[in-house]
Amino acid sequence: MPASIRSICALSVFLVALAACSEKQAETYTPRIAGGDPRQGKTAIRRHGCGACHAIPGIPGANGIVGPPLAKMARRAYVAGKLANTPENMIRWLLDPPRVNPSTAMPAMGLTESDARHIAAYLYTLE
């Protein structure tokens, strides 16, 4: 086989492998939140009654229509329409929404830092 064909074949294999690798990463990426556990987040969401205002996938009875639905939260560009969607900003928002946006209808729910981390960890599973 001529060298040029071998080079084209090698390049093709490399590009296919690279594409598969990046697709796999995109499918499985969930931000790691130090001290955050999605299972505990589900429990905290139920305990704090978040589903009274929000529709939240995976939370039985969470079908509220006051606030926005939280489906695909991990893929959104912004938290609350104001902050870049990062774990730090998500936690900041959950801890004190009126401080981030004084005109928000979402009240401060009295979350602990730990609950906010767990809830954020769960919300980032919603892709």
Score class of each variant (00 low, 15 high):
1 M>T: 12
3 A>M: 09
4 S>L: 14
5 I>S: 12
7 S>M: 13
7 S>H: 11
8 I>V: 12
8 I>Y: 10
9 C>I: 14
9 C>T: 03
11 L>N: 03
15 L>H: 00
15 L>V: 06
16 V>Q: 00
17 A>Y: 03
19 A>S: 11
20 A>F: 03
22 S>W: 14
22 S>R: 09
22 S>M: 10
22 S>D: 03
24 K>S: 14
24 K>G: 06
27 E>P: 00
30 T>V: 15
31 P>N: 10
31 P>Y: 14
32 R>Q: 15
36 G>E: 02
36 G>N: 07
37 D>C: 14
38 P>G: 09
38 P>A: 11
38 P>T: 10
40 Q>L: 14
40 Q>T: 01
40 Q>H: 08
41 G>K: 11
42 K>I: 12
43 T>K: 15
43 T>Y: 08
44 A>P: 01
45 I>M: 13
47 R>K: 13
48 H>D: 06
49 G>D: 03
49 G>M: 07
51 G>K: 05
51 G>D: 04
52 A>Y: 01
52 A>L: 04
52 A>I: 04
53 C>F: 02
53 C>N: 09
53 C>R: 02
60 P>T: 10
62 A>K: 01
67 G>R: 05
67 G>F: 08
69 P>A: 10
70 L>K: 04
71 A>Q: 11
72 K>G: 01
78 Y>W: 00
78 Y>M: 11
79 V>Y: 03
80 A>D: 06
80 A>H: 01
80 A>Y: 03
80 A>L: 02
83 L>H: 13
86 T>A: 09
86 T>F: 13
87 P>S: 08
88 E>W: 03
88 E>V: 09
91 I>K: 06
91 I>P: 10
92 R>G: 01
92 R>V: 02
92 R>I: 00
93 W>Y: 15
93 W>A: 14
94 L>F: 10
97 P>H: 04
98 P>F: 06
99 R>P: 00
103 S>Y: 02
103 S>A: 12
103 S>C: 00
104 T>Q: 07
108 A>L: 00
109 M>R: 13
109 M>V: 02
111 L>A: 08
114 S>R: 13
115 D>M: 05
116 A>F: 05
117 R>W: 07
119 I>R: 07
121 A>N: 08
124 Y>W: 15
124 Y>G: 07
125 T>G: 12
125 T>P: 06
125 T>M: 07
126 L>D: 09
127 E>K: 15
127 E>N: 15
